[in-house]
Simulated assay, not measured.
Amino acid sequence: MFRKLLLLIAGVVMAGAVKANTGVAFVHGTGSQSDAYNDYWTGEFVQSVIQGLPNSSNYTVINCDFTQYMWTSGAAGCLASQLTNFINNKGITSLTLITHSNGGNVVRWVMSNPTWDSRYPNIINRIDEVIALAPSSAGTPLADAVIDGNVFEEALGWLLGYQNDAVRMQQVAWMEYYNNEWLYGTSGRPALPKPFSSVVGTDVESAIWDGDSYCGGYSQNVGLEFTQNWLNSCSDGFLDCSSQSAAGSVWFYDTSKTYGDEPLSHAQSRRKCFGLDYFLRTRI
């Protein structure tokens, strides 16, 4: 009798595993995107990562207006709409979100405020893990500089945009307020309902003779090495390591895992650079 009961339980567990339908969503950072597949992530990166899925067609690339505050209809509302459509159309039961930069903040808003929007709970229930690539969880001094209107406004236009609400939101003091009052996952706050695992970029390399400097775009890495002068010694050119590791847990610091122990600049952490795509593929 006991043996039959064990077989019945095993059968139920196996049936549940078979029915699981895994999917991945790529969530871009600051900016208003209409073709993030090509313009933000590149097809090369996305197509490599999704090879880790049981069904490689079970993916979506989010296109929203993340120049807005994270809670707005154009940001979190748009994200909720596109994720809900993806979940419903594909029958997704286990969802991994791969975010970059400010995309991690928008996702944290959804997970931290389940009563804000009736679509949030169903999304949260489906999430297996958030893999946050270089998340701006504690903001960046460069956002303060852009809002102040000094030289960084021009230097970072290609990366952040200009004086939009998302940049304003990522000022250090503003993110401290949001983390203390509205967002989960940082020190002293409730834990997020699902794992939030960050990949932290620790440095920027842009030597013209070093082929690794060209991955992710040479001109972008040159710009990030310039802005790194206003950040801590451990940074990816846009974010201090302390900001990237402020929420959830750290999956890895770049050089502890990357091919050739190469650092990941902020531009490279959304590209097929130094094995990042492979690590993500095997993780999902």
Rank of each mutant, 00 (worst) to 15 (best):
R3S: 06
K4E: 14
K4P: 00
L6K: 10
L8I: 07
L8Q: 03
V12K: 01
V13S: 08
M14H: 04
T22P: 06
T22K: 15
G23A: 12
V27F: 07
G29H: 00
G31R: 03
S32H: 11
S48R: 14
I50P: 08
G52M: 10
P54F: 12
S56Q: 15
S57Y: 13
Y59S: 08
V61G: 08
F66R: 03
T67D: 03
T67Q: 03
M70D: 00
M70G: 02
G74M: 02
L79T: 06
F86Q: 11
I87T: 14
N88I: 14
K90R: 15
I92T: 11
T93Y: 13
L97E: 10
G103R: 03
G104P: 01
G104H: 04
V106M: 03
R108D: 02
V110F: 10
W116C: 11
S118V: 14
R119Y: 13
P121H: 11
I123M: 13
R126C: 15
I127P: 11
D128R: 15
I131Q: 12
L133D: 04
A134V: 01
G139M: 05
I147E: 00
D148T: 10
N150S: 13
L160A: 08
N164D: 06
D165I: 00
M169T: 05
Q170C: 01
Q171C: 05
Q171Y: 01
A173F: 09
A173L: 14
W174L: 01
E176V: 08
Y177S: 08
E181I: 12
L183Q: 03
T186P: 07
R189D: 08
A191I: 09
P193G: 07
P195A: 11
V200C: 06
D203W: 05
S206C: 13
A207F: 07
S213Y: 04
Y214K: 09
Y214H: 09
Y214N: 07
C215K: 09
C215S: 07
G216P: 00
Y218E: 04
F226K: 12
Q228R: 15
S233F: 10
S233A: 14
C234S: 11
S235Y: 00
C241A: 06
S243T: 01
S243D: 02
Q244T: 02
Q244C: 04
S249H: 11
V250M: 07
W251D: 13
Y259L: 14
G260N: 05
E262C: 05
H266K: 02
A267V: 00
S269W: 02
R270Y: 01
K272I: 05
K272L: 14
C273F: 06
C273G: 06
Y278H: 15
F279N: 09
I284K: 11
